[in-house]
């Protein structure tokens, strides 16, 4: 029996598997379909202070070679409706629950976190500083290390709970952003959000997404996110949550070796919502064959 548990920022996770924000709704949509026990934690779709309708459809399309492009545009009911509708049903099957928080400005992040502090089932927050699909906030804030530090520090001041900051993959240099977030007192970094991409239909001469560009995800993104995880893990001593292109147990092992402590399953859940159980089994089999007793023993063991 492999020990799959991970300790991060004072929290115990029974496995390193997490849901990628935006791919698992508010946690209850899959409740009749899958076994939640493979998850160490759930990260919700991003919540803002006020409701956001989201972007003009179409909002999703496939790309060649198994990729995916989305431009949901942070559609969400706003923090107050979220608390009224969903707070009672958290947490699911005793997993750690993290609320993804998004805003256009520092005050908006703080306001959402302050309201969520009254929801007892919430373990912590993932600050979304890297959504590629909105005009304000998102990438425009997340690319600036001073803004990352300011938002993180402001949220840190109103909560003692776990905070991860989800960073953009668009900066060539990970270290300055990672260091800024670390200095502001986060518990983990999420590496990373989707890459900006687009798909064109030559026949109609139109983009396939209503928002023209979208966030590129899925298996082709894995080498990019592996590099970002490795760079972040070298830059700071915080736990890193990997996000981008995971579909199988071997992917997860690679991310652990690169320095990840948490493993977010995102787009894969659309095709295969049973992936968490399968991936946990595949990781366990990989470890058993090689005499690895604890998944956490693999973290950062990449030889370079």
């Amino acid at each position: 029996m492999i020990d799959t548990s991970i300790q991060m920022g004072g929290l115990a996770f029974r496995t390193p598997l997490l849901t990628g924000s935006g791919t698992f709704g508010y946690g209850d949509e899959y409740r009749t379909l899958i076994d939640y026990s493979a998850f160490g934690g759930i990260i919700t779709k991003s919540i803002s202070r006020l409701p956001r309708p989201g972007n003009q459809p179409p909002r999703i399309c496939e790309t060649q070679l198994g990729g995916l492009l989305n431009s949901i545009g942070l559609a969400n009911p706003g923090v107050e409706v979220f608390i009224a509708d969903k707070a009672q049903i958290l947490p699911f099957d005793a997993t750690q629950v993290f609320i993804s928080v998004v805003g256009d400005a520092v005050e908006e992040f703080v306001s959402v976190v302050e309201k969520l502090e009254f929801v007892p089932a919430v373990s912590g927050y993932e600050l979304n500083l890297s959504c590629p699909n909105v005009q304000k906030g998102g990438l425009s804030l997340g690319g600036d290390k001073d803004a990352v530090a300011e938002i993180t520090r402001a949220c840190r001041n109103v909560t003692k709970r776990f905070i991860s900051v989800k960073l953009t993959p668009h900066h060539a240099l990970v270290a300055p952003l990672a260091e800024a977030a670390a200095a502001a007192g986060v518990d983990a970094l999420t590496m990373t959000n989707t890459l900006v991409g687009m798909v064109i239909d030559a026949e109609t001469r139109r983009p396939k997404l209503g928002n023209v560009t979208g966030g590129y995800s899925g298996p082709p993104l894995k080498p990019v996110s592996l590099a970002k995880v490795w760079q972040a893990a070298k830059a700071v001593s915080l736990p890193i949550w990997a996000s981008g292109g995971i579909t199988c147990g071997l992917d997860c092992i690679e991310f652990l070796l690169a320095g990840a402590s948490g493993l977010q399953l995102g787009s894969v859940l659309f095709a295969d919502p049973y992936a968490p159980t399968r991936i946990l089994r595949e990781m366990s089999e990989w470890c058993e064959k090689r005499g690895v007793k604890k998944l956490s023993d693999l973290i950062g063991q990449l030889k370079t």
Binding site: G22, T23, F24, G25, E29, Y30, L33, K45, G54, P57, P58, R59, I60, C61, N70, I72, A75, L269, F270, P273
Partner: peptide, 17 residues
């Protein structure tokens, strides 16, 4: 019929105005 992701209301891809 529109382009759809998860099918269960989680991803909000299949929006109609």
């Amino acid at each position: 019929e529109v382009p759809m992701g998860c099918g269960v209301g989680a991803c909000q891809s299949c929006a109609v105005e």
